[in-house]
Design a binder for these strands. Structure first.
Length: 627
DNA sequence: GTAGGGTTAG
């Protein structure tokens, strides 16, 4: 069950262990082997290493140290073991700690309160809460009472095991039993609440902890500011940052980065830049992450020249760009259809010995796909594999989307099969893209087949998947089936959007169920969903098809008063209705209005007018008016 | 010698 750690004994010994003695004459590893060969056991003092502190020790060396410790007789004290274990836990190598603990057990080295506490923490951190609880039971049987530290670890364990209500209950229980939750306990729970999208409870708990006399720490502020930024409450995050600084807790670069990134994500680039200046004025140096947030943000706006300027700026300030910096810029240039610029940046990152990552390659592939250069996309795909960088589900999704968009859905399906052969599992995006592609190619059966496969494979369809399915069914004359799916969607927890309703309204209107369509349209305001231009146009078209010209015109009027702006489709639908009706004056009037909005007659309208010209119902001037 | 957290790219 637990990860086994392979021991490669001597290779793990820390350099400082061998510097003493004949290090000058022998290379380190050689000198060590020599000594081992002499006496068959370690001849250096692990105690000295422990005394000197383990803060900078590497994992390999820590494991080597452990293997030396278990060789010595008598065994080192449990305090010495716990120093080593906690150093490894600080590296977040929790599985290693657990494995070493098991080895101690096998060797008959008894644990104490501290080592048990370390194991409980490690089990909690790697989501093995039940094992943590088992250790707690064992520990209590031995007469050790858990203290606030151990209990806080368990609170963390519940938070990380999606059992937030039990985490809350545990803290309540602790209070009942007379424990005093401290800053760490509260901060852990606040973090858990944010992780479970319970931001308001988290914020309320901050107030409670203050009332209980617990000081907020930099960590507490970090948790809260991050949680607020992630849900878009940037103003509150910003005011907390100010409050923290007024309370004499010194801000660091990371908390500024968090807020700057939040501002970037929620489209306040200028505020982000202002905060950037503010932090510099306060003497907090921005780092590569700060720049990466700003550069990515500018790239997302297509402001690649501003982004490039920031790259020069950071290099000037001797802040080294990394793979994230280059990937963001390469992504922007590739999307913009500037492959030469992207390649220049790619070469520059190689020159700086920065290894491209899968994200870099995926961006390059996406750039080619977006500009219908599928052959080059595939070449890039092969190139990345040749460089030992293996495609992931995003790589395949990008290529599949490219092929579907280029109406080459069979090749998309081929890629889908290939990825399965490589042991990669398609996700919601993969299936959704292919279902859309298949419907577009009018391969209705295969599309529905794939939807079934998606569900049976346990890949959860999302709203987009369902919308494509509804659209496909409606376009295939299967309104009844679409209505069943729609009914299911309404009963589910999914929040349907205007696309869902537009598809259904159009489907109803096109099959003559205009009244049903109208009822659904009227129900939208109750649902708090605003109809868009497509919804209005579908409904207007529905009225027209039933000859309900007045209703159509009334809805058009309402749309102009408080709805979305009519588009070419809206005008053309109404113009055709007037023409069929023989109402030349009204048609001419509407064509004029449409032209003033810079729209022109569409193929369907021009076709109708041409026919009417031939049979003499219209004169030439109509055709001229249309374009 | 034991507990908590926050930032960036597709």
């Amino acid at each position: 069950m637990l990860a086994k750690i392979s021991f490669r004994g001597k290779r793990f010994v820390h350099r400082s262990l061998v510097v003493r003695g004949n290090a000058a004459t022998f290379p380190p590893s050689f000198s060590l082997c020599q000594r081992r060969a002499f006496d068959g056991k370690s001849s250096y003092d692990y105690r000295e290493i422990l005394r000197n502190g383990l803060s900078d020790i590497r994992l390999d060396d820590a494991i080597g140290l452990f293997s030396e410790m278990v060789k010595s007789r008598p065994f080192p004290s449990i305090i010495e073991f716990s120093k080593l274990l906690s150093a490894i836990a600080k590296m977040k190598k929790f599985d290693v700690v657990i494995s070493l603990g098991e080895q101690m057990q096998k060797l008959g080295i008894a644990h104490d309160l501290f080592t048990y506490s370390i194991f409980i923490n490690c089990f909690c951190r790697c989501s093995q809460l039940s094992l943590a609880l088992a250790i707690l039971g064992k520990m209590m049987k031995l007469g050790y009472e858990p203290d606030i530290v151990t209990l806080s670890s368990l609170v963390n364990g519940y938070c990380h095991s999606k059992r937030i209500s039990e985490a809350v209950a545990l803290v309540d229980q602790m209070v009942e039993m007379g424990y005093q939750p401290n800053t760490v306990t509260f901060t852990t729970l606040i973090h858990g609440l944010f992780l479970h999208n319970k931001a308001s409870e988290a914020v309320a708990l901050v107030d409670q902890m203050v009332q209980r006399g617990c000081q907020l720490s930099l960590v507490t502020y970090g948790v809260v500011v991050n949680g607020l930024c992630k849900k878009g409450d940037i103003d509150l995050a910003l005011s907390l940052l100010k409050k923290m600084e007024l309370g004499n807790i010194e801000a660091d670069v990371v908390i500024y980065n968090t807020v700057i990134d939040g501002l970037c994500k929620y489209k306040h680039v200028n505020d982000a830049r202002n905060l950037f200046n503010e932090m510099e004025n306060k003497g907090i140096k921005p780092d590569v992450v700060t720049y990466n947030s700003l550069i990515s943000c500018l790239c997302n706006y297509g402001r690649w020249s501003d982004a490039s300027r920031l790259l020069s700026d950071m290099i000037e300030k001797k802040i080294n760009p990394d793979v994230v910096t280059f990937s963001a810029l390469i992504d922007a240039f590739a999307k913009e259809g500037k492959p030469l610029e992207a390649e220049k940046l790619y070469k520059e990152m190689i020159r700086r010995s920065i290894a491209p990552s899968i994200v870099t390659y995926n961006s390059l592939i996406n750039g080619f796909c977006m500009h219908d250069r599928l052959d080059e996309a595939k070449q890039m795909f092969e190139f990345m594999v040749s460089k030992g960088c293996f495609p992931n589900v995003v790589t395949y999704n990008t290529l599949i989307k490219g092929f579907c968009k280029a109406k080459r859905v069979e090749e998309g399906m081929e890629l889908f099969r290939e990825m399965s052969q490589r042991g990669l599992v398609g996700d919601t995006v993969t299936y959704t893209t292919l279902i859309q592609g298949l419907f577009q190619a009018r391969d209705f059966d295969m599309a529905q087949e794939l939807f079934k496969e998606m569900v049976s494979d346990g890949v959860p369809p999302n709203l987009m998947t369902y919308n494509f399915l509804l659209d496909g069914l409606c376009n295939n004359g299967k309104l009844e089936k679409a209505l069943v799916v729609f009914g299911y969607m309404q009963k589910s927890k999914m929040e349907l959007n205007i696309f869902t309703y537009s598809i259904m309204i159009e489907g109803m209107c096109k099959t003559g169920k205009v009244e049903d369509g109208w009822n659904l349209f009227c129900s939208l305001s109750l649902k708090g969903v605003k109809p868009n231009v497509v919804t209005y146009t579908s409904m207007i078209s529905g009225f027209c098809s039933k000859g309900l010209k007045q209703e159509a015109y009334a809805l058009f009027k309402k749309m102009k008063e408080d709805g979305p702006l009519p588009n070419s489709g809206t005008y053309n639908t109404l113009i055709r209705e007037h023409l069929r009706d023989g109402d030349k004056a009204a048609s001419a009037e509407l064509i004029k209005e449409m032209r003033s909005c810079r729209f022109a007659g569409d193929a369907s309208t021009i076709g109708l007018v041409t026919n009417m010209l031939h049979d003499g119902r219209l004169d030439k001037s109509f055709l001229e008016m249309l374009s």
